[in-house]
Simulated scan of single mutants.
Amino acid sequence: MTKIMQISDELKDWIVGALKSNVSPIALANALIKKGFDNRFAYETLYKIAGNEAIKTTEGQQIRYNYEVPEIGRKGNILFTSDKDVRVLSRNEKPFVLHLDQVLSSEECDELISLSRSRLQPSLVVDMGSGEEREGSGRTSKSMAFRLKENELVERIETRIAELTGYPAENGEGLQILNYGLGEEYKPHFDFFPPHMADASKGGQRVGTFLIYLNDVADGGETVFSKAGLSFVPKKGAAIYFHYANEQGQLDRLSVHSSVPVRKGEKWAATKWIRESNIYTATRVFKEKSKGSLIR
């Protein structure tokens, strides 16, 4: 069997993100080998990337990402939903980031925190080799995820996000609640999957992230897009939506971002990762008649 001797630009940049999250080069090289890469090529490539050296990719040279304005960016400065009008505070084109005011009410934020607090677990990252989730030193928060339409509040928020973005609620992963304590952070990373790990049977690639701040943070906790020079201070009820995949299947490497350490107090946020298509196929989800909720 012929071993793979080249990597794509997208895979290279995902490796960079993994290295910044303190995943060891050896672990990443072994993951490449398991995926069919040549042993020597895998190790040499990882150590070149770790040392910030130039490497050969399948594209030969970097191809510019073709920016497309997603539906949410074509609706003007006030976005209308069936239960709430949302004002656009700012927008950035490259990467595409929309800053939104009062997506959730103060009461909705408080209720999400209350419902999730007892269910928090250490946050996980995706293992590049296996595709499984595991704990990682680059992500030190705690989190939990609601099931799709788990309760009235979650369903209302999912519907609102769907109406704002134009993507059906079924394209979204379960609403994840994040809690960062003092000093906790999420180092620079991408939200999209490495291309070889995007599974069409499970909704395909992630295309955008809807991040809602559930409290005001006394100091720290900003969401930072380092390559774009953008920084967003958490404000209760406000949100950002960033889009990083286009119709050609390209992934925007300028979307690399981080949650900087909390220096005072704590940070609460809700995240909805949106995929290309419906995640909850008939074979993976059914309706529990007694509760009327969707179970994965």
Rank of each mutant, 00 (worst) to 15 (best):
T2C: 00
I4D: 02
M5R: 14
I7D: 01
E10D: 11
E10H: 07
W14P: 00
I15D: 00
G17F: 02
A18R: 14
S24Y: 00
L28T: 02
A29R: 01
A31C: 01
D38M: 01
Y47S: 10
G51S: 11
A54T: 12
K56N: 06
T58D: 06
Y65M: 09
V69T: 15
E71V: 08
R74H: 01
N77D: 15
L79S: 06
L79T: 02
F80I: 13
T81M: 07
T81W: 06
V88L: 13
V88T: 14
S90M: 11
L98W: 06
D101A: 15
S105I: 11
E107I: 05
E108I: 09
E111W: 03
E111G: 01
L112Y: 10
I113Q: 15
L115R: 15
R117D: 13
S118F: 03
S118Y: 02
V125W: 00
D127P: 01
G131P: 07
G131L: 08
E132H: 08
R134N: 03
M144N: 13
E150M: 07
E155P: 00
T159S: 14
T159K: 15
I161G: 03
A162D: 07
E163L: 05
E163G: 11
L164P: 01
E170N: 11
L175E: 04
L175Y: 12
N179R: 15
E184Q: 15
E184V: 03
Y186M: 07
K187T: 12
F190C: 02
F190Y: 15
M197D: 11
A198F: 06
A200R: 15
K202Y: 08
G208T: 13
F210W: 10
A218F: 07
E222Q: 15
T223N: 08
F225L: 13
G229E: 10
S231V: 04
V233C: 03
G237I: 10
G237D: 10
Y241Q: 10
H243L: 02
N246W: 05
N246V: 05
Q248N: 14
G249L: 05
P261V: 04
R263H: 05
K264G: 02
G265L: 07
W268V: 02
T271P: 04
W273V: 03
I274F: 05
I274N: 06
S277A: 14
A282K: 10
T283V: 02
E288K: 13
